[in-house]
């Protein structure tokens, strides 16, 4: 990186707190159960087609809340994770839309997918303390 360029993101920290990390707990899994069931339905090609043809009609079949539907419509990837969406489930929604992991990560980190891609791997160094 040239000397005058400002790094767009801080180096990743060594903690497990939000928004650095969304640790996927049982509670998150309960909160996101219907959202994940919807997203995981998109591993079937016919379902992907149906969703792309009419998002609202497709989502109506999955018992989602208004907030959840709005998060999907807004492609609010960070909001979807906070609502209990599992990254691996939400990734199926991104895949259906022709997007990938970097689009979700970019939304999480407040950058765009190309910049994030260029930035990875984001190297850090630490090993466990010797006893």
């Amino acid at each position: 990186m040239p000397a005058d360029a400002t790094p767009p993101l801080q180096s990743p920290g060594f903690d497990l707190d939000e928004p650095g990390t969304y640790l996927y707990s049982g509670r998150a899994s309960t909160r996101g159960f219907r959202l994940n069931r919807f997203a995981l339905s998109l591993t079937k090609p016919a379902n992907r087609e149906a969703f792309l043809a009419d998002e609202a009609a497709y989502m109506a079949g999955y018992d989602l809340s208004e907030d959840e539907t709005a998060l999907v419509r807004a492609r609010d990837w960070t909001g979807l994770l906070k609502a209990g969406g599992h990254l691996q489930a939400i990734l199926k929604l991104a895949a259906t839309l022709g997007l990938n992991l970097y689009h979700i990560g970019a939304h999480n980190t407040g950058t765009d997918a190309d910049s994030l891609y260029a930035m990875c791997p984001r190297g850090v160094s630490a090993t466990p303390e010797p006893e």
């Binding site: 650095g20 990390t21 090993t127």
Partner: peptide, 29 residues
Amino acid sequence: HQISGTRFGIANEDLDRYFLANLKDNMPA
């Protein structure tokens, strides 16, 4: 690796090397 949150893309090669170096003879640690 980590693929969500603002720590997306964290890469700790020293940790990976530490793991590989210890797996054969020092797994208990």
